[in-house]
């Protein structure tokens, strides 16, 4: 370290290495303050205000918006969102684990990157475009129904605008976010451990439970959060694939800002959502990475 400091000083730069570190952080820090911390503060202030008859925000200090949320039909939309996000996460976790294990253990190293690229490839096109593609497939006169009909099914079920379509779209969209961290942790797993387990007489299921699972749990939790958090706030998928028939928490927020123009209530709901998400991340830090929670205290 001392050597480095002298080198820096020789070159005409002052300060310690730590100062330099701070300097490197400055653009990102500034970015975070302007585009993250300030908007969050504004959100918090707005959530304590109210709306006038013209839809303008009136600043104030009352918790009516929060009371309104917990007493109205709005709580239902939160419950629904939590359920949808949980189901999405569970299915992504299941599919993601299967895929990652197959990729990490059964595919030769040289080909793994190829399959990983395939997994991520859909993300290169617009999210909306992918949803519209699903709509074309699932429509009453769409590809799926017509194919089933041609195969002899008289009245094939129509998936579009059902909760199943929403779930399908969510899983499809968020699966890569689960696979990325899961694969990253499984890839590092020493396959010899599994061989040892098999040598010692463990069934595949047992070696999964006792070796693979504990060693990849961090990836699983990270992936779950990566899926759960955006799934909780998603409002486009339910709107397009669900036919706007059900209001999730994201739709409620969007509606308050873009239709009803009740920014105060919208801010309150956003704040509640942020608190829930922060709680989830805090749980993650506390139980999954306790050292990290310690370090950040």
């Amino acid at each position: 370290m001392a050597v480095m400091n002298t080198v820096i000083k020789k070159n005409g730069l002052t300060g310690t290495a730590w100062d330099k570190g701070q300097l490197i952080l400055l653009p990102a820090g500034l970015w975070l303050v302007v585009f993250m911390v300030l908007p969050l503060l504004i959100l918090l202030v707005y959530s304590l205000g109210s709306r006038d008859d013209l839809g303008q925000i009136v600043l104030g200090f009352n918790f009516e918006n929060y009371l309104r949320f917990f007493s109205g039909p709005y709580l239902k939309s939160l419950m629904r969102s939590l359920m949808l996000a949980s189901f999405t996460t569970a299915i992504c976790l299941f599919l993601g684990t299967l895929f990652s294990m197959w990729l990490a253990f059964s595919v030769p190293k040289a080909k793994q990157n190829f399959f990983m690229t395939l997994m991520v490839a859909p993300l290169w096109t617009s999210f909306l475009l992918r949803i519209y593609a699903w709509m074309t497939i699932l429509r009453p006169t769409g590809l799926l129904t017509e194919t089933l009909h041609a195969l002899g099914w008289q009245n094939p079920p129509v998936l579009l605008y059902t909760p199943w379509a929403v779930l399908l779209g969510m899983v499809y969209n968020y699966l890569p976010f689960m696979v990325l961290p899961l694969y990253a942790s499984l890839e590092k797993l020493d396959v010899r451990l599994l061989e040892a387990a098999a040598d010692l007489g463990a069934t595949p299921w047992r070696s999964f439970l006792r070796v693979t699972l504990p060693l990849s749990s961090k990836g699983m939790v990270a992936g779950s959060i990566m899926v759960f958090v955006p799934a909780l706030g998603d409002y486009v998928t339910p709107d397009l694939l669900g036919g706007a028939k059900t209001m999730f928490i994201g739709n409620l927020i969007q509606n308050q800002f873009l239709t009803v123009r009740d920014w105060a209530f919208g801010s309150a709901v956003s704040t509640i959502l942020i608190v829930i998400v922060s709680f989830a991340i805090w749980l993650y830090l506390k139980y999954v990475e306790p050292d990290a929670a310690q370090a950040h205290r």
């Binding site: 290495a17 961290p181 994201g250 998400v277």
Partner: peptide, 28 residues
């Protein structure tokens, strides 16, 4: 050495938390 420091400043967890924030923000 500099690389080591950067590693300390922005380790995997922080990166995860930052990207979570970004994904969450983008979805709204």
């Amino acid at each position: 050495m500099l690389r080591l420091q950067l590693g300390n400043i922005l380790n995997r967890r922080d990166f995860l938390r930052l990207s979570l924030g970004t994904v969450f923000g983008a979805s709204l």
